[in-house]
């Protein structure tokens, strides 16, 4: 088996269908939707599409967990002991088990919410962030950026479960949230340890994290206003080792991602 498996080679059964990033980016409806007032983007029980939105998000979480499992597994295999010490691989193996459970939980939740495996397309950009050949970059991209996003997503889903008084969703999201806080903390600790004597490498890794954080703010998907379906969760991020300043930075990146998206829409509207 070769080291460093590209995202194009991720193995899936025939139920899964891969979304093409270009299809999403160049979807001609984006421009129209950006100028429509459909009410707040946060999932709310009084909106007509709430169940379908929560189901598609759950499916997104499910495929995201599969990719997180695959990413953690590859970190166990892709590096020599010199690049990734045993203790780091042990943590990644533990994360593998955690992500396996999350896949199981997501499958059960998908059943509960009434969706089937493969009902929605899969985007593999999450795994793509786990393909970096530098383990420190990978830790920053995956454990700090993506697992950080997972904290925000699970926290938002848990809040949705509480609002709708759905005991199953609330219970499951709470447990998964606990694991994600551990994973983010793991990433923060290892990033600091591995770059203790190489501050340039640390800065490069943090820059990579910023890039991933901005990409995963997805032009307003995540933020701190009711226009953002996923809310940045400062409380749990701080538990996971993020400083107040780092939380502020992520919030600013998310805002910037939303502003950039709006500027692009305005430019496209002006051009059309």
């Amino acid at each position: 088996m070769k080291r460093h498996l590209p995202e194009t080679e991720l193995a899936r059964d025939e139920r899964f269908r891969r979304n093409k990033v270009e299809d999403q980016i160049f979807d001609p409806r984006n421009l129209a939707m950006a100028t429509r007032d459909l009410g707040p983007a946060q999932m709310s029980v009084d909106r007509p599409s709430v169940s379908e939105r929560s189901r598609s998000l759950m499916h997104g979480i499910f495929v995201g967990e599969i990719q997180a499992l695959e990413g953690a597994g590859r970190t166990c295999f892709d590096f020599d002991d010199a690049d990734a010490p045993f203790a780091l691989k042990l943590d990644m193996a533990r994360q593998c088990w955690d992500e396996s459970r999350h896949v199981e939980i997501s499958c059960k939740l998908a059943d509960h919410m009434g969706t089937d495996i493969g009902e929605y397309g899969e985007s593999t950009f999450l795994y793509a962030a786990a393909c970096n050949t530098d383990p420190v970059m990978r830790l920053c991209g995956v454990n700090r950026a993506l697992e950080g996003l997972a904290i925000d997503v699970f926290s938002s889903m848990k809040a949705f479960g509480e609002t709708t008084e759905d005991p199953i969703l609330t219970f499951c999201e709470d447990w998964m949230l606990a694991d994600e806080v551990t994973h983010v903390k793991m990433g923060s600790d290892w990033m600091r340890r591995l770059t203790e004597n190489d501050l340039d490498r640390r800065e490069r890794a943090l820059e990579f994290q910023r890039t991933v954080d901005k990409v995963f703010s997805l032009g307003g998907f995540r933020g701190e206003s009711e226009e953002n379906p996923i809310q940045i969760t400062r409380k749990f991020r701080e538990l996971a080792g993020f400083s107040q300043a780092e939380c502020d930075e992520i919030a600013a990146l998310a805002q910037q991602a939303m502003d950039d998206a709006r500027s692009m829409v305005a430019a496209a509207a002006a051009a059309s």
Binding site: M1, E9, L69, C76, E99, S100, V103, Y127
Partner: peptide, 22 residues
């Protein structure tokens, strides 16, 4: 086992490998 997780299409096998990896 960790490396194989991404290379097996069978979902149940994928999850078992993830558990056994740890």
């Amino acid at each position: 086992l960790g490396g194989w997780v991404a290379t097996v299409p069978e979902l149940d096998v994928k999850m078992v490998l993830g558990r056994h990896c740890y």
